[in-house]
Design a protein around this nucleic acid. Structure first.
Length: 503
RNA sequence: GGCAGGGUAGCUCAGCUGGUUAGAGCACGGCACUCAUAAUGCCGGGGUCGCGGGUUCGAGUCCCGCCCCUGCUACCA
């Protein structure tokens, strides 16, 4: 059984998660669930980045100590991911001892293996005394910090530890172009390759005046810079440096947002090469959720809250909408109108109604017991949908995967309309009726399984309505060839996706 | 500015190495059906394929120019 170690970015503990965070977690979860269906031993990790400067500020605003603040935020984030049925096997927080151990050890290994690549130098920049941090050009407007426009920025130099990133350009570039380290989708790979080709600067990897962080080994005055710290969570969660961490490492897939590809595709591999550790197999950088075509920003207050989005139709429809309509590659839009349209068309009138009519016919004409029947044209459509679905999902094209699965809904509705079981019943054509009802049950079985990575809860409901034991998520992939539905007693469906819509 | 990607029906998108009347889903209109969540099926209206040139027997699909949008342009999870 091949292992599949999958991670999401760990989130800053500075505010509630929004739809953008949700897209990433739900997308990664969909991949994790699909890999499990295919028989992989999946290890799926999510977590929190708790050492950032913004944490200290947020904690101060909240009037609590940093640790209390991050504990609170971690619980909040985890609560949302549980509501969205994320199936992560682990939850790592950078304030945990296991993480600090990994960070310390990674630095030690770089030091041991490439002593010249960690060095001390002066960092010079504009320091904001309000934020207590250096500001980059993009954070400065009219010569002042965006957040503290009344304060003067102070030109400051400090002694920092640096990582000789520039020394790793060729090796990182080679890993990417050779395909040993895949960066997807292609647009992100192009950006990274261009960046590498244009050359790299060394980066500072420590900070002074930052009590909230991991002490830099051998230098009590400094803490490890938050980015250098955060990336190592992937290794820490695998058990590094403990014995046997190679059972999970290298990671098969890091799912991240497009805004942080540089860290994952340039700095991270360089760090690993420097320490003599294998590179992850792949980074997938998804796009952002936009609100009716514009950037969703919590500071601008335009963002719809995750709470509201979940409340509208429940967690499963939200998962479906994010992955089917917004998409996991380029940026996509969220709007209530589109959300309602998708809900009505694809879920209530589509899958929901199909389940309803199919199951009720079995109840009405066969006392709820699925009859026997040979393969039909609907099974051919089912096999084709499964094939297209697998191809798309293997390529992490979740939108196309959902499309392939829902194509089977259309095929099944057409099949029902064409065979008209109600006419067969009236005419007493029992064998044909058996065949049609069994074919529809098989389509529903396939749909429950294919839908499970997208809508685990609803798939479970449908599975149970079909009289199947256990969970659709645990179904044997091979059973999609010949779904074992005959003889099962189906339930009169309660209605998977209720209508009318809430107002 | 540089680099990258994109502009195809009201909306979301598909159209591989150029080839008959440009497609799907949703939305809209009509018809049919009744097992079903007033659901489903069929038919239909609707597109100068961003604009202008060019290559070709033939271009949404290649070349040139222009317009517009988005992303990246290093320490922003």
């Amino acid at each position: 059984m091949p292992k599949f170690y999958l991670t999401t970015a760990i989130d800053y503990s500075n505010g509630d998660p929004h739809l953008g965070h949700a897209l990433e977690k739900v997308g990664a979860d969909c991949i994790a669930r699909y890999r499990r269906l295919r028989g992989d031993a999946v290890h799926f990790v999510m977590g929190m980045d708790e050492h950032s400067q913004s944490v200290i500020q947020a904690a101060a605003r909240g009037g609590v100590a940093p640790q209390e603040w991050v504990d609170r935020m971690a619980a909040r984030f985890a609560g949302f991911w549980r509501r969205l049925e994320c199936s992560n096997d682990d939850w790592i927080r950078t304030t945990e001892p296991r993480h600090a151990r990994a960070v310390t050890e990674l630095l030690r290994r770089i030091e041991a293996k490439n002593p010249d690549d960690l060095f001390v130098a002066e960092y010079e920049g504009l320091y904001c005394t309000g934020c207590e941090e250096f500001k980059s050009e993009s954070q400065i407007v009219n010569g002042h910090c965006i957040e503290h426009p009344t304060l003067e920025l102070v030109p400051t130099r400090e002694r920092n530890h640096f990582f000789r990133l520039s020394a790793y350009r060729d090796r990182v570039l080679e890993a990417i172009t050779s395909g040993a380290f895949r960066v997807e989708p292609a647009i992100r790979r192009n950006e990274v390759v261009r960046l590498l080709e244009s050359g790299l600067q060394d980066i500072s990897v420590s900070r002074v005046r930052q009590p909230w962080g991991i002490p830099f080994p051998g230098d009590a005055e400094q803490t490890v810079y938050v980015w250098f710290d955060a990336l190592i969570n992937y290794l820490a969660a695998a058990g590094f440096p403990g014995a046997g961490y190679e059972r999970l490492w290298p990671a098969d897939l890091h799912v991240v947002g497009k805004g942080i590809t540089r860290f994952h595709c340039v700095i991270w591999p360089a760090m690993l090469i420097a320490a003599g550790i294998e590179l992850p197999r792949e980074v997938w950088a998804h796009g952002y959720v936009q609100w009716e075509g514009t950037k969703m920003s919590k500071t601008a207050g335009t963002a719809v809250t995750l709470d509201d989005a979940i409340a509208r139709h429940g967690p499963d429809p939200l998962r479906y909408f994010l992955l089917r309509e917004v998409g996991f590659e380029a940026d996509g839009n969220f709007s209530w109108e589109r959300y309602d349209e998708r809900y009505t068309a694809d879920l209530a009138d589509g899958l929901g109604n199909l389940a309803s009519r199919g199951l009720q016919m079995i109840v009405k004409y066969r006392g709820g017991v699925v009859p026997d029947g040979g393969p039909t044209s609907l099974d051919a459509a089912g096999a084709e949908a499964v094939e297209r679905y697998a191809q798309a999902m293997d390529a992490l094209d979740l939108r196309a995967g959902a499309e392939a699965a829902w194509g089977l809904v259309g095929a099944a509705n057409l099949y029902v309309q064409t065979t008209a079981p109600w006419s067969l019943a009236k005419a007493g054509r029992e064998t044909e009726l058996d065949g049609a009802l069994a074919a529809v049950a098989r389509a529903l079985y396939r749909l429950a399984v294919l839908a499970s990575p997208f809508m685990p809860g609803k798939a479970r409901e449908l599975w149970s309505d079909l009289g199947q034991p256990g969970d659709a998520a645990a179904a044997d992939w091979a059973s999609l060839g010949h779904p074992p539905v005959s003889g099962r007693t189906v339930a009169k469906p309660a209605g998977l996706f209720p209508k009318p819509l809430p107002t």
